[in-house]
Amino acid sequence: MHPHERIPYSPITERPQLSLPGSARVAVWVIVNVEEWSPFEPMPRTVLTPPAGGVPTPDVPNWAWHEYGNRVGFWRILDALDDVGVPAALAINGKAIETYPQITRAALDRSWEFIGHGYTQKNMQKVEDEEADIKATTQAIAAATGRPPRGWLGPGLTETWNTPEILAAQGYDYVCDWVLDDQPLELRTARGPLTSVPYTQECNDVAMMLIQHHRAEEYRQRAIDQFEQVYADAEKHDSARVVALVVHPYIMGAPHRTRYFREALEHINGHPGSVFMTGSDILDWYRTQGA
């Protein structure tokens, strides 16, 4: 199926009302992406241009840039989340669970939700066997957590035309790649619906810092502006909405950026109309709405 066959057009102003517990208007979820980048392949994202051009292998400085995030940056982000008291979802490569066991343990100790994020950090259109890659990721998460993941986020949000079918067949309940709405929606598959839980490209540190090259404080401002606007929309139309905040340890875990992530969390957490949830929390709530 092609996109409009899986998820027909639906204006958000013409849907049944959604109500969050208490007086909340916006469900906010934080996704921390932990990835393992192979030093034996060209780096798909770089911070330094090779001095002689080309695509060198090994590319030590750019591999090390990513590795810094898992060695240092993750722990800064973890401190910010702990200090503000906010739960997170861990979108993690299946292989990274074994390579970075202390990160796995930190997430388990805090009861974070684990989301499948490919077995390694590679475009899903380029993996040798997509079905096997998803299965290996599922098994790695199940072995670490005691249960298979319910949610999936493709590396770089990449999918093939068949990805939703594979996810549904392997027991996934929701997917984050379809960044086209502020409310959960159902994707059609041959095995029944697969829920699309709102994710974000705009309030994503990859877009802001690596592609658009904004100053570090842009993350705080954009996160707050996003939340305030979505809250106003939810209040005006009397129907709850979802906001996602996305971080990568090698980006927002850099020492000149983490404070702005923390300040965004503090602002949103102090708002009486917000409630922090995980992807599974949002899915389970949505299913109670009869939408």
Rank of each mutant, 00 (worst) to 15 (best):
H66A: 06
Y119I: 10
T104Q: 05
V72F: 08
A144Q: 06
P3M: 01
V28H: 03
R262S: 02
G151F: 05
W65P: 14
P50F: 10
M209N: 09
R15P: 11
Q125M: 14
T189L: 02
G54S: 02
E98G: 06
V275H: 08
A223V: 03
I97Y: 05
E35D: 13
A168Q: 04
S19Y: 10
A144T: 13
A244T: 14
V34M: 00
D173A: 14
H237I: 09
S196T: 12
R257V: 07
F227E: 07
R220C: 08
G273S: 01
A80F: 10
V179G: 05
T138C: 03
D238R: 15
L78M: 13
P21Y: 12
Q229R: 15
V72E: 12
A136D: 11
W29P: 12
A52H: 14
H256G: 10
Y250V: 06
T163E: 01
G94M: 01
V127W: 11
Y174F: 15
M1W: 12
E36V: 14
T163M: 02
N70C: 09
L153K: 01
A64E: 13
N70H: 04
P148E: 11
H214W: 14
N62S: 00
L153S: 05
Y219G: 05
G290A: 10
V175Q: 11
R262Y: 08
G73I: 03
V247W: 00
